[in-house]
Design a protein around this nucleic acid. Structure first.
Length: 800
RNA sequence: GCCGAAGUGGUGGAAUGGCAGACGCGGCGGACUCAAAAUCCGCUGUUGGCAACAACGUGCGGGUUCAAGUCCCGCCUUCGGCACCA
């Protein structure tokens, strides 16, 4: 009988070996490389979550497998540690965020090691360390020098509770991402990064990447490229004229433009307010629009509101017709030009507005729909142009082309591309972030710090609580704020905003290649070897933020010659959420949170790892199940007890080892861990039924399972093979010639229903199979009309 | 509203157009045990039948095919993402 398995002792033994002997920190640069990356965790006080286990375990399996296959593997770990939760927690508990961060990182590392992860521990990074954020600041400086970082006054989303300006993506639905409070609009001078300049490259770069299609689509939608035209309408303002530029994707419909709408914030209303006849009404509407939270303004299907601007009238540049001008909050200042030509016949919003204000609706695309009753919204636009002398009879595409040509001839319009993606609001008015390395000089303006002066270290503040006036806590630290201008030497002040959460994670994949280099963002030789991330696993929630931001930074770094690849990640996979056993998202308030430590203590790390990978389709959400954990523990036990059935050799014709190797290998590579494990379970069932296992089978299964359950397989391999180390072996390889059995059982269908089965040698021809089928007697008295035979698979007979 | 993913037993979930329900959980039965737990073995979609077997079965309605969970057309529902984007 095999010795009883003491998971606590065995897991400790192997973890000590791996980590003390630095098994995963030995690099051999003569081997081919594999760079596997997981999204580094935010070291929160709550510690490791079972969601982390799922996210990390997939790449863990791949990394261990690649090592066994002879690759030089980079599988690093680090901590994305700047951010609000730590700062808020620090304030609550009256500790310094530095202290909180350090404590949390120690705890995370301890937990990760108890799971047995094979990370390259010698390369651990922490984005809050000055030697790391020196380079985050360095990238910002380069962007500033290239004109990609700029300050601009805009309406920003301000959370009155967190007292912080939020990026658009952090205040979706008008709700603060962090605290759930309602966001208000506030005017502020803030830093932006010109990510829009990279929009086209971020789109085209997707083509060659091995990303799941839905991720590509989500990024494409986020970037939101649209092609159309800027068209200039002349607006009569008193005796003068104001060229009002509108953006439209359908310049061909200009004959149907019966009115214009500008956003309440549009400069036209400021610059020529004197000619507005209904000043009070317009001002009241503007005030009201400002007060409205973004959320209300964005609600679709709500009643259209707006005000006619008396005293101004616009001229349609194609028809010469005079059309009225409105201001309405359904037109946004931050998209297009903040002004539109309304074509009510063919746009739902314009139609709603026209109905409410009794404006004419002119059909310009032929359809079965009566546009007076409902709009014919042809987004991509099927239909023939009518009532449009210049383009009558044309279909949409040629009509747009023709119309733009005409507009260019007349000098009233030109083709234009626009994007939904906004420039990246790159600032935070909080303490726990990277300081922005810019100095404001009364004589020289915004001056970048000298590179040799980096890092600009975050001062050690005692009071880092946010200020109510939306400025950063750093502004309170005058000795830090006051400095001298690097150019003229005059007294000057530092920027006091810090960088947003996403800054440090935008380039961390490069730091892992040379984590201690103080001269380069990445050591050229290291970059030359490791290059791009071969496989990056992470969550769907980062697809439109982190994953785009880091692609942007990578492309920028290539442009300035710091690196050579356009794209950072070659392949991306995503894990589904682990839900509570009630099928709901895990949360403290629901009391359905599973702590991985508890599972490790009760069942061991191997059982947790096995279960989390077996739980279901890797990409889909899956509910936790404590019964399922027991099943995994049972399987581990069955696996351990294989030792009792061990013989040097036995009849193994009932188990096709090559097919097993192929299945497990292919499924690992495709992130189908659940079916790989299921197949091994089936093999174990076969062996149990037989009662004997050959040494070759046992060793093969040990190696196949080693990436998933490294502790037990290491132990068992050592016992069975006189002290040999499994991590020094080769991952099994199958022989393609042996994948198919000698004889195959073929189901026999009559009229598509299985009526029997025959056993024939593999590769048999139809005649030979039919011979056997006839012996079954299923066809007696029937007339065969047609036979469909798929070799080694199935035979179907159509008969009367 | 738009984009995406999905809907299969009591349950988590498997199925390059080729035997639907692999594998796991749960349940039932048996072996071992004084007994229980653990372990091992068997059964487990529904209906009818003692049984062999038959009919029906992958959200709903049509279709293509020798053959459809899978492909096509039209719906319903759920979950994600985007959202007055001109």
């Amino acid at each position: 009988m095999a010795k009883e398995y003491n998971f606590k002792a065995v897991e400790k033994k192997w973890q000590d070996y791996w980590y003390n002997e630095k098994v995963f920190e030995k690099y051999d640069y003569s081997k081919p490389k594999f760079y596997g990356l997981i999204e580094f965790p935010y070291p929160s006080g709550a510690g490791l979550h079972v969601g982390h286990i799922r996210a990390f375990s997939s790449m863990e399996v791949i990394a261990r497998k690649k090592r066994l296959e002879g690759y030089n593997v980079l599988f690093p770990i680090g901590y994305d540690a700047f951010g609000l939760p730590t700062e808020n927690y620090a304030m609550q508990t009256k500790q310094h965020p530095r202290l909180v961060t350090d404590k949390n990182i120690v705890k995370f590392e301890e937990q990760l090691k108890k799971i047995g992860y094979s990370f390259c521990w010698d390369r651990t990074i922490d984005t809050t360390q000055p030697d790391y954020y020196k380079w985050t600041q360095w990238v910002f400086l380069q962007m500033f020098k290239k004109g990609l970082a700029y300050k601009s006054t805009t309406q920003v989303n301000f959370c009155p509770v967190c007292k912080v300006v939020l990026a658009n993506e952090e205040s979706q639905g008008g709700i603060c991402d962090r605290c759930g409070a309602e966001v208000v609009q506030k005017e502020k001078d803030v830093w932006f990064l010109r990510i829009r300049k990279y929009a086209d490259r971020l789109l085209s770069g997707l083509e060659g990447l091995q990303f799941p299609e839905r991720i590509k689509i989500e990024q494409q939608n986020w970037i939101g490229k649209s092609t159309g035209a800027d068209v200039t309408f002349e607006v009569k303002v008193g005796d003068g004229k104001y060229p009002l530029v509108v953006y439209t994707t359908r310049p061909d419909t200009i004959y149907g433009a019966t009115f214009l709408v500008v956003s309440p914030e549009h400069p036209l209303l400021k610059e020529h307010f004197d000619v507005v006849e209904n000043k009070e009404e317009v001002t009241a509407y503007q005030e009201q629009a400002k007060l409205k939270k973004e959320f209300d303004r964005v609600q679709m299907n709500k009643d259209k509101t707006g005000i006619k601007i008396e005293g101004m009238v616009a001229i349609n540049p194609i028809t010469g017709a005079e059309i009225p001008l409105f201001t309405a909050d359904y037109v946004m200042m931050n998209y297009g030009t903040g002004a539109i030509m309304a074509v009510p016949a063919h746009d739902k919003r314009d139609w709603d507005f026209a109905k409410k204000f009794n404006l004419p609706i002119v059909e310009v695309i032929k359809s079965d729909v009566d546009v007076q009753v409902e709009p014919y919204c042809a987004k991509e636009g099927a239909g023939i142009m009518v009532n449009s002398p210049l383009v009558n009879g044309l279909t949409v595409k040629p009509a747009i082309k023709k119309m733009i040509e005409e507009m260019e001839k007349l000098g009233v319009g030109h083709a234009k591309t626009d994007y939904k993606m906004k420039d990246w609001a790159f600032n935070r008015q909080r303490y726990w972030g990277e300081p922005i390395p810019i100095i404001n000089c009364p004589h020289c303006g915004q001056v970048p710090m000298k590179e040799e002066d980096l890092p600009l270290v975050l001062p050690d503040l005692e009071d880092f609580s946010p200020t109510d006036d939306a400025s950063s806590p750093l502004s309170k630290c005058t000795e830090w704020v006051n400095t001298t201008c690097p150019i003229c030497g005059a007294p000057a002040t530092r920027e006091t905003d810090t960088m947003p959460q996403w800054a440090g994670s935008s380039w961390y994949f490069l730091r892992y290649m040379s984590p201690n280099d103080n001269e380069h963002i990445v050591t050229p030789e290291a970059y030359k070897y490791w290059g791009q991330v071969d496989w990056y696993n992470g969550g769907m929630e980062h697809v439109t933020r982190h994953l785009i931001y880091s692609r942007f930074w990578n492309q920028f770094l290539k442009d300035i010659g710091a690196i050579t690849h356009d794209e950072p990640y070659l392949r991306r996979s995503t894990q589904g959420l682990i839900l509570g056993s009630d099928g709901e998202k895990m949360s403290k308030s629901k009391g359905n949170v599973v702590n991985p430590d508890d599972v490790v203590n009760a069942y061991g790390a191997d059982v947790l790892r096995l279960f989390i990978l077996f739980i279901g389709d890797y990409e889909k959400p899956a509910p936790w199940s404590s019964d399922g954990i027991k099943g995994s523990a049972r399987f581990m036990n069955r696996f351990w007890n294989l030792q009792d059935m061990l013989v040097d050799e036995c009849d193994t014709s009932d188990l096709n080892l090559d097919a097993l190797i192929k299945k497990v290998n292919d499924d690992y590579e495709a992130c189908k861990f659940n079916t790989a494990i299921a197949f091994v379970m089936t093999a174990l069932n076969t062996i149990y039924a037989r009662g004997k296992v050959s040494k070759k089978e046992l060793n093969t299964i040990c190696l196949l399972l080693n990436p998933v359950v490294p502790h037990m397989t290491s132990e068992m391999y050592e016992i069975v093979n006189d002290g040999a180390k499994i991590n020094e072996q080769k991952f099994p390889v199958y022989d393609p010639a042996k994948l198919i059995a000698d004889v195959v059982e073929i189901p026999v269908q009559i009229m598509g229903k299985v009526r029997g089965r025959v056993t024939v040698p593999a590769g048999s021809q139809e005649d030979a199979v039919m011979e056997k089928v006839k012996e079954l007697g299923l066809l007696d008295g029937k007339q065969i009309i047609k036979v469909i035979y798929v070799k080694d698979k199935i035979i179907n007979i159509v008969a009367k």
